[in-house]
Amino acid sequence: MNDATAGNMIKTVLHPVSDLAKAKEVYAALAGVAPQTDSSFYVGFEVGGQQIGLVPGGGPQAMAAPVAYWHVPDIEARLAAVVAAGATVSDPVRDVGGGRLVATVTDPDGNVLGLLQDS
């Protein structure tokens, strides 16, 4: 990994679910661990350095399919770069708590890509 790509990794994948309680049981069995975060609006599992999240109803961004989030050191700069390259902003940068910033874009083929910056 060079300096330009340092810190740019997919480490978070969010899954929209219709029944959070049922999904939590399935993902706990799959992961082999209890959720690290367990609330009515998000359930998260830490598995081998990967964050797997369950979002009821697709959350405020109305996800219809899983979204992989690229962890980046500067979300505003990376968002500008991917938009300049042809992506379209789906969900602008917003703070989801604890200084964590997220945004989503759609690539030219309609794939949703997530960006995530931890403070």
Rank of each mutant, 00 (worst) to 15 (best):
M1T: 07
M1H: 10
D3S: 09
D3H: 04
D3T: 04
T5I: 08
G7V: 05
G7S: 06
M9S: 10
M9G: 04
I10R: 08
I10N: 09
K11S: 14
T12G: 02
L14W: 00
L14H: 00
H15T: 04
V17G: 01
L20F: 08
A21I: 11
K22G: 08
K22R: 15
A23D: 07
K24R: 15
K24F: 12
K24M: 12
E25P: 01
Y27G: 08
L30Y: 12
A31H: 11
G32Q: 10
V33D: 08
S40E: 15
F41I: 13
Y42M: 12
Y42C: 06
V43W: 05
G44S: 13
F45D: 01
E46V: 02
V47C: 10
V47H: 10
V47F: 10
G48Y: 14
G49A: 03
Q50W: 07
Q51W: 13
Q51T: 12
I52H: 10
G53P: 04
G53R: 02
V55P: 00
G58M: 05
G58A: 05
P60V: 13
Q61G: 07
A62F: 14
A64M: 09
A68D: 01
Y69P: 08
W70H: 08
W70C: 05
W70G: 00
H71R: 04
P73K: 02
E76I: 00
A77N: 01
L79R: 01
A80H: 06
A81C: 11
V83E: 12
V83N: 07
V83Q: 08
G86L: 10
V89K: 14
D91S: 14
P92D: 10
R94Q: 12
R94Y: 08
R94K: 12
V96T: 11
G99C: 09
R100A: 14
R100K: 05
R100E: 07
L101G: 05
L101C: 07
V102L: 15
V102I: 15
A103T: 06
T104L: 13
T104R: 12
T104K: 08
V105C: 03
T106S: 14
G110T: 03
G110V: 00
N111K: 05
V112T: 15
L113K: 00
L115F: 11
L116C: 15
D118A: 11
S119R: 13
S119W: 00
S119V: 09
S119G: 14
